[in-house]
């Protein structure tokens, strides 16, 4: 079945990488910041790199905050895109910045117990929940992470990462899902997650 998958044009820099990753799976995707276009997509990707403050400012300027909050189809946030899905982020020069509030949680600076930040490189997952997004993914596989902030583990966590402290590597609530790592740059394991997302049944 041909699907209409739209990547939200957040103005962030990894949009091309995310689009190419779907194209490698022979899945065509569009990039748009038009709320009506995003609303009628079968599935939506929310990419993001950089800082939460800049990215949320961009979503506000584009008038995308409410339209994104009203989506009912599967939505996948990637890296900063995932962090924007929770209630608020501490990654801002002036205190907390409100995020989209799609999934309960807060973004805090990682307390890496003396380890180097950013947490940059390939790492594994643990406590992987049964969820269609994570079919075929196990604790032996590595994913590419680049981040200094993270979401705490909670009952919306589908898989944990660990870097000095446990943090939420994959989260979900209803139709909203997010991955802290970059599936588009995580080799075959990352491609598997994207394929799982494509194959999700609405």
């Amino acid at each position: 079945m041909k699907q209409d998958i739209v990547i939200v044009n957040t103005g962030c820099a990894n949009i091309a990488s995310v689009r190419y990753a779907f194209e490698r799976l022979a899945v065509a995707v569009s990039v748009s910041d038009d709320p009506a276009r995003i609303n009628r997509a079968d599935k939506v990707i929310l990419p993001g790199v950089g800082s939460a403050q800049a990215a949320m400012t961009s979503l506000h300027q584009k008038g995308l905050v409410e339209p994104l909050q009203q989506l009912t189809q599967p939505v996948l946030g990637v890296c900063l895109g995932m962090q924007m899905m929770v209630d608020a982020s501490a990654e801002s020069r002036d205190g907390d910045i409100p995020c989209l509030g799609l999934i309960p949680g807060r973004v805090e600076r990682l307390q890496a117990e003396g380890l180097r930040l950013p947490h940059m490189g390939w790492n594994t997952l643990s406590d992987i929940a049964e969820h269609p997004l994570l079919h075929g993914i196990d604790e032996q596989q590595y994913f590419y992470f680049v981040h200094s902030f993270g979401v705490a583990v909670s009952d919306t966590t589908l898989a944990r990462g660990n870097y000095g402290q446990p943090f939420a590597a994959v989260i979900a609530k209803g139709n909203f899902m997010g991955a802290q790592f970059h599936p588009e740059r995580s080799g075959r394991a990352g491609a598997r997650l994207l394929k799982n997302f494509v194959e999700l049944v609405n």
């Binding site: 032996q140 080799g187 598997r192």
Partner: peptide, 9 residues
């Protein structure tokens, strides 16, 4: 070292 699971996709 990362292993790259070729059977995964």
């Amino acid at each position: 070292m990362r292993n790259d699971d070729r059977e995964c996709v």
